[in-house]
Design a protein around this nucleic acid. Structure first.
Lengths: 193, 193
DNA sequence: TATCTTTGCTAACGAACGTTAGTTTAAGCA
DNA sequence: TGCTTAAACTAACGTTCGTTAGCAAAGATA
């Protein structure tokens, strides 16, 4: 779907995602946003309520995608290693398919105001807990090394959430391909067996 | 060294590091900074040239630390696995010992203007190349799996540069301790052998 | 004591900020 | 054709921004 065929409201959201990612939320003015679309700043308010509403839309839409995709791939799987692998690849696919939005999700959430900010943190913590449980399961099953669960979870998310800093969805590597390679990397490490 | 004993200039730089990290560079005003110190915004300009100078100081000081620490630990080491391990632990120590500054280095560098911006990117690329070479050496020596070098380098840095998002230097785990654990994680992965 | 330097102050500059009010334009529909 | 509505416009609001000018206080130096 090209950007011209979107409704103006969707178009605003899409351009906002891109600008918030490239320049940061605070450094992006409503005049920047309007200019990128080709209208006046004041005209934006025929479609949106406020600048912060744009940030909220991005953050909570992507949060929902993380949960949805997680639930979809976990459904029915019991093997701890496979459960972890599916969680990692699902997360990676969401990030790699939504580079602008996930970048904003990772880096600009702190500009949310209450009560959105607390709601955001709660959702993120709930999502992180799922990964901690997967790691615990793997350790208890004797499949994973005895790592500290919350420490390992942090390292896993650091790896995954850094994806927008380097990945370009330009055809060289598909989201599915990097998802598998990242899962390999996290599970196997760098050393040859 | 407590913050009261610093020269005013050093104090400004230190508080700026902290505010730029917590709120972001753009969302931090010179009035915020002055208030945190207890003077008027205009008084800052008796000590500094501009807001951007503060950002430059942070970014290039920490860049120099990365290079210095890297050179220090590589000196004399030839074993590829050990060279990689030393590079990772050195980088981790610099990050973990400079959480505010490294956070700004990772997230706020894009607000640099030219020519500082290009200089920053060049230094970062040179530093990343060192890690790529270490990975290449390890693969050629048959110690590392045959991963794509620049892909693996990106994953390594994602892991390392995410440290400020979760690590608190509060005595529970020292910078040296997490450095070793992160090196283990990158080399061994999650799976039990 | 007289002078210089450092470090702070108040006041203010012009620019940019997010947003609102009121109006115009143009398309869809009765 | 006349009416309604959506979506744009111009103008402006009050606020905040980084920064400068000019001055005052205080300590160091002569």
């Amino acid at each position: 779907m090209s950007i011209e065929t979107l409704s103006r409201k969707d178009q605003i959201n899409q351009v906002a995602q891109n600008l918030f990612r490239e320049k940061g939320y605070s450094a992006t003015s409503m005049r920047d946003l309007a200019k990128a679309i080709g209208i006046e700043a004041a005209s934006l308010y025929s479609h949106i309520k406020s600048k912060e509403e744009l940030l909220q839309n991005i953050c909570f839409r992507i949060a929902a995608e993380f949960f949805d995709e997680y639930d979809r791939v976990q459904n029915g799987t019991t093997d701890p290693k496979l459960r972890f692998r599916h969680a990692v690849t699902a997360h990676t696919r969401v990030v790699a398919s939504n580079l602008d939005a996930s970048s904003v999700f990772f880096n600009e959430w702190r500009h949310l105001n209450e009560p959105s900010l607390s709601e955001f943190k709660a959702q993120r913590a709930a999502y992180e807990d799922r990964f901690k449980n997967l790691l615990r399961e793997g350790i208890e099953a004797g499949v994973f090394r005895k790592v500290q669960v919350s420490f390992a979870m942090r390292l896993v998310f650091s790896t995954l959430n850094g994806i927008p800093t380097w990945y370009r969805n330009d055809g060289a590597l598909s989201p599915d391909q990097i998802a598998e390679q990242i899962a390999d990397f996290l599970l196997e490490g760098l050393l040859k067996k």
